[in-house]
Design a protein around this nucleic acid. Structure first.
Lengths: 333, 333
DNA sequence: TTGAAAGCGCTAACAC
DNA sequence: GTGTTAGCGCTTTCAA
């Protein structure tokens, strides 16, 4: 309960009549030290609630005990919960390692903030929360030789990637829909500058080809950015006689649902609908929406554990794919 | 373009044939130094893209050049955009001050992470993103004598608070509704353990009293946590003949809207609706929703500027109230 | 097993 | 106006 002003390793040494070196050894566990001395020191440290100064430690061993968490600043609201949960997964790991998380927001292509924390040596490693097709942040970090991992996938070489297996996942859910006898599947997707959307499209197409069917390009509506885009795509899909709308993410699905509802188009009677992602946005929909379920927190947790391995100089595999679940619900019945 | 390994102030001194002190002075601007020498040093620094090591600087002047950003971990998705924008406001200021943001997530009442960054001296100050009625984080920081500010309001003494003027805002919007001749206003609110909700309720009641009317407790539905709670409240309000649903926040309003829609209750013909907050959640509703508009980014920006003043030992006023806008839309026509 | 001393990169009294 | 020196709190050789 000692609330003295900043106890240092030197104060402890004085109080116990040992040297600073000995105290340091007791704390770090490195080097030889007598059982008895160590216990004495550790007990005392506990007692006065001593906390080492991370600045000094950092200066001495050239570490910051921070990891950078990089997220886009232009995120639409629907994607925020994903990043938030990822971050919680990251946070679990950093806590355990006695690290902290430093935030870096990327606005559009502007990676100034990221450069800042890298050049200023404020972090020992970086986790990028999402990947773009032509990702400046990845390119920059690749040249910086600071340890980093990305959540998502990238064609860039030599980048540690942690992702859900979007291709397989989307292929699987599409296959299931086909197996149910649904044929005219319309894909409604977001920006193809996001790697994840490209993967989803790929899985979708693969399932169709594997079934021996032909991919109908007219039923694929990509790069829908605004609500209007999405609504137009829904209209077009229905006009072409789509039996099921396959939405690339929840925001798209959500907007589509609103429109269908407004137009009094009943699900799943008149049209079916499925989403390649499952978030709170769709949580309370009636009927429940068939979708893929991922675990963002696990993604963050895994990514951060990998990052620490890279920081420690361990070898890690370049790409890790985490699992997913297909959740069949009423919307495709 | 020099990409040497970690240039230090000493390397610069050697290269230029001056002392480390002189280099330090050129950089900091403190102390006397010749115009010519300074320019020479500054030019060279620019040239080799030298960045001071914040660890060393921090150790020397006992600063971390980090601020802590404290947010709740149990945030519902609808509130995330608020925190995100606040953080962007904070980020603008930290960038300008050459500071970075360290994240601290509070789970329920568990302020372990906050304690960590404080005890480990990883931050020079803290910004708390929201306030609870009996706020452990605030209590803890108040005893820690680390500079901090809160976004939101608190009864706790001697705490620098930055908030929107929720009482006045809610009072104003309520007054306007009353002025339109609407009399039976039902208030549907969230947890009264959040200070903001108490303020909103207060503004609501004040407007009614000021109009010389009596507050009808039966029409006040508070502490609605789940969607079910909200839907029950909506049912009850309608059962009691409410003319207008006044929702304390967008999540509540959103859930209420879904229910009204499901029950085929037309807005504003059959019932009117207004919200005490305005976010993306409601952005695309038809009809548009009458609501209060705040600027979360400005809140974060302002809070962070204040924090730096506190860190610099300046006197700041304890409470700052930022403005708001009333947006009258179709939902109360 | 322990301690003295140098050093991590920077700042700031105090000389000159 | 500029340099010398002694720290900031911790780690780590190298001796003892």
């Amino acid at each position: 309960m000692n609330t003295q002003k900043n106890q240092t390793i030197g104060d402890i040494a004085d109080a116990l009549g040992v040297s600073k070196t000995t105290v340091s050894r007791a704390i770090s566990g490195k080097g030889r030290i007598g059982e008895e001395t160590r216990n004495k020191i550790l007990t005392y440290i506990e007692e006065i609630n001593y906390k080492p100064n991370p600045m000094a430690k950092g200066l001495a061993d050239q570490k910051t005990y921070n990891v950078g968490w990089v997220i886009p600043g232009d995120t639409i609201a629907a994607d925020l919960p994903f990043f938030q949960r990822c971050m919680m997964g990251v946070s679990e790991v950093t806590m355990a390692e006695n690290y902290d998380i430093l935030i870096s927001i990327i606005y559009d292509d502007n990676i100034a903030q990221l450069k800042r924390i890298v050049e200023n040596k404020k972090v020992d490693g970086v986790i990028i929360g999402r990947t773009l097709v032509d990702d400046k942040a990845i390119k920059y970090l690749n040249e910086s030789n600071l340890p980093f991992v990305v959540i998502g996938s990238t064609p860039e070489k030599k980048v540690i990637q942690i992702d859900n297996d979007h291709i397989s996942a989307c292929k699987e859910i599409t296959s299931i829909l086909l197996m149910k006898g649904i044929r005219k599947l319309a894909l409604i997707g977001g920006s193809t500058s996001h790697v994840v959307n490209i993967s989803r499209q790929k899985g979708f197409e693969e399932a169709i080809k594997e079934k021996g069917l032909k991919v109908d390009k007219d039923l694929m509506f990509l790069n829908n950015e605004t609500d209007d885009d999405i609504e137009r795509a829904v209209d077009a899909a229905i006009g072409l006689g789509a039996e099921c709308l396959v939405c690339m993410d929840d925001r798209i699905c959500y907007t589509a649902l609103l429109k269908l509802h407004r137009d009094n188009i009943i699900i799943p009677d008149r049209i079916k609908i499925a989403s390649f992602y499952n978030s709170d946005l769709l949580a309370n929909n009636q009927p429940a929406i068939t979708a893929l379920k991922y675990d963002p927190k696990e993604l963050g947790n895994f990514a951060c554990r990998k990052l620490f391995k890279v920081i420690d100089g361990e070898d890690v595999e370049e790409r890790s794919l985490l699992s997913y679940e297909v959740m069949l619900k009423g919307s495709t019945q």
